[in-house]
Design a protein around this nucleic acid. Structure first.
Lengths: 367, 367
DNA sequence: CTGTTAGCGCCTTCAA
DNA sequence: TTGAAGGCGCTAACAG
């Protein structure tokens, strides 16, 4: 019923080995023979048996791209860019030669699902894995992920991190491309401070996420440098949490709803707030809605800022002040690194700059 | 080096077949034996060899979800929902039992890549394939896709269409869930007409896409019913294109840039336009920006409407009048159908209703 | 309930 | 440049 390599070989009057060789293009084959084989392939409408081939070769053409939320363009842009580099242009024949199957896996931000996907990819003997976006900081989970990645690397899978901080023991990883979330967060808040804001509310992402923590730390660095935070140092050498620090920060998921609710909460806690910094642009959109629903104007009454500079941010009204992350470029680079098409940065680690984008949603506070 | 089933069997003092049975859970195994095997698996940190297993079983646990644009939440929402239904909740152990590997493939709207992905999935002996979003109407490509899907179905792959019209010969497909784009488009324009609009510009999607065509047809149906279009019939029985019809329609990709540019063009062609209907919400956002940049107010000077009701649409200023598509529900249902967890609709075809959402971006035209 | 026995379809030395 | 042969690791009948 189903056509096999042997059928093609028979029709082309060559041995199965020869057919395999022309299909994989790894060995020299006479042009005339190759021609004949290719014709037989087309005639028979032959499609390689992936599992059989992967079993024999001990490697597959599957490349996994893990994302935290596939409905969020933040991840979609990176994943799409990576896929473009990995999948190659395709030859338009639909014949699918030696191409990789670049594939995105949605963890939904769940550590369990992340591990499950890694195991599934390991099981498939994936050629490469790209992990995008912030990591969960639970030590148990981090250890599990590290161990899993080590095993993957051990089995020949190339592992690349994109928009995620390097592993403690980075040996397992081809490269880690980390966004400068901290620097971006700091510059954003510095911008607000320079406009004259002093009471700034912060709508943070979920707890225990590297992205959340780094952006928040950048914000607090700036606040502290301006003398607006209790700058004391606690027992473990970590800054003590000042009163305002806690009171002016609300955590929640990276979605608009969270931005809306958290902003209402901030406004309740501290009506004198003159600016709201959101964990990302989507959250900022929700924050804007909340501000407006409270009868306040942006930026006259309250400034609002986001992070990421997603495509829609420039269309917000007023256009959103935010921090641009080169998502597409980073994703593409991660894809190339995963394919070995690009040499890894020194030490396997690169920090990707974040650029402040000042637009209409921020302005000096009212006098 | 790498642990195999035989190693586990040896350690558990059973035959390889028994190990296979407990891992797949398809055959009865004594509880004590199972226990022993599972312990051996954990001790050895064994991971099933997917390719070998797929080869022997002639089927894999891979499920492909094809999307036109992974950076567009329209697809992300559907794909995420489908993945949730397919991947199952996971057991939290990261051990990855009999779970499916739900995976999304980004065609970028390219017919070639769509075919390539289908071939790759066929090569992997995918358990199921879900095709989301509008199809390209080129007959050659459609025939190629149909043929490919027939072959997939033939090999036991379950094929489901989600947000895509049924195939001409629907035999290959488990189920087709089609959005009522035409009805939604019609009702949206009827809403505008009822407000008193007469000169309505239309920013359409790319040519040759079913989604584009159906939405546009709905719009024109409404216009024609209102006597606003040359309702003549041409040689081939197709409606002749009236002057306004052509002049008030501009095609472009489904992105904000296209909405921006097309709206400027429409405003140039016909300054008397009082409403703009966009192909989708993203395009509508660009349209809003263009309208404002021209110094016009929404909705006082010009009404703007979108399609899809993506999450950000309610946060636009003013909130976007649009047509809601139950993307999450549709994606989840497609996922269930792909897994055989839900019985297909009668005839394998279901039309999913589109709901008009009237919000602040539309109002009566100026007197 | 469990072991034995054949392959699944392909890649890859090794020879020719 | 090509053919022959063995085995990749697992599953699926059959027996028992």
């Amino acid at each position: 019923m189903t056509v096999t390599l042997a059928d093609v070989a028979a029709r082309a009057r060559v041995s199965p080995a020869t057919v395999s060789r022309v299909l994989n293009g790894n060995y020299p084959v006479a042009a005339s023979t190759r021609e004949r084989v290719l014709r037989a392939v087309d005639d028979l409408d032959y499609v390689l048996n992936g599992p059989a081939s992967s079993l024999a070769a001990a490697t597959s053409d599957l490349v996994g791209i893990l994302v935290n939320d596939i409905a969020d363009p933040f991840f979609g842009i990176m994943a799409g860019a990576a896929q473009t580099e990995i999948g190659g242009p395709g030859d338009g024949s639909g014949r699918a030669g030696g191409e990789k199957l670049a594939v995105v896996c949605n963890t939904g931000g769940s550590p369990e699902r992340e591990l499950t996907y890694l195991t599934l990819l390991q099981r498939q003997r994936a050629a490469a894995v790209v992990l995008t976006g912030g990591a969960v900081e639970d030590p148990v989970h981090q250890a599990a992920v590290s161990a899993k990645l080590a095993k993957l690397a051990d089995a020949g899978t190339r592992v690349v991190l994109c928009g995620r901080p390097p592993l403690p023991d980075g040996e397992a990883v081809v490269a880690a491309l980390a966004f400068d979330n901290r620097g971006g967060g700091r510059r954003l808040t510095e911008h607000l401070l320079s406009l004259g804001h002093r009471r700034i509310g912060y709508v943070a992402g979920p707890l225990e996420r590297t992205t959340t923590r780094h952006r928040l730390e950048g914000h607090r660095d700036a606040m502290r440098a301006a003398g607006l935070l209790g700058g004391g140092t606690g027992a473990a050498g970590r800054p003590t949490d000042g009163y305002d620090e806690e009171r002016l920060t609300v955590h929640g998921p990276y979605d608009r709803r969270s931005g809306y609710d958290a902003t209402l909460e901030l406004l309740r806690r501290e009506p004198e707030v003159t600016a709201i910094v959101a964990a990302n642009d989507t959250v900022a959109l929700g924050a804007c809605a909340a501000v407006r629903d409270r009868g306040l104007r942006i930026p006259e009454d309250i400034s609002v800022a986001g992070f990421d500079d997603l495509p829609f941010s420039v269309d917000a009204v007023p256009a959103l002040t935010t921090v641009r992350l080169p998502l597409f470029e980073a994703g593409a680079r991660a894809g190339r690194l995963a394919m070995g098409k690009e040499t890894p940065p020194p030490g396997g680690i690169a920090t990707i700059a974040a650029e402040l984008m000042v637009r209409g949603s921020t302005a000096p506070p009212r006098a």
